[in-house]
């Protein structure tokens, strides 16, 4: 199975908007996904202040990139759902 990369933004905006919980993803991941994803962190990716992302602005933080694709208002559940879809 192909490995997916989850990149969690650890910048200020994302951290205060719920990203601090996302950092626990590693521990809260369901068993079936544990071996197929790689979790990384990144200093501020810059999405919060980039108008090019359209609706993706500061109030849609926290942001996560899954295989480069931006997931906004990310929660553990949302990330898991996204990964399940990719893996289906």
């Amino acid at each position: 199975m192909k490995k997916h990369t989850v990149n969690i933004c650890t910048g200020t905006t994302c951290f205060v908007m719920g990203g601090s919980e996302l950092l626990l993803l590693d521990e809260l991941l369901p068993d079936d996904l544990k071996d197929v994803i790689e979790i990384k962190g990144s200093p501020c990716i810059g999405i919060c202040k980039n108008a090019d992302y359209g609706k993706a602005q500061a109030d849609h933080a926290p942001f996560v990139q899954i295989d480069g694709e931006v997931v906004d208002e990310a929660s553990i559940q949302k990330v898991v759902d996204h990964l399940r879809r990719l893996n289906a």
Binding site: T10, G11, T12, F15, G19, S20, L23, D26, I39, K40, G41, S42, P43
Partner: peptide, 17 residues
């Protein structure tokens, strides 16, 4: 390159890199 140390955060402080 900047590499985030994912294990280095506590409740109120983001991880360092």
């Amino acid at each position: 390159g900047i590499k985030v140390n994912m294990k280095s955060f506590v409740k109120n402080v983001p991880p360092w890199s």
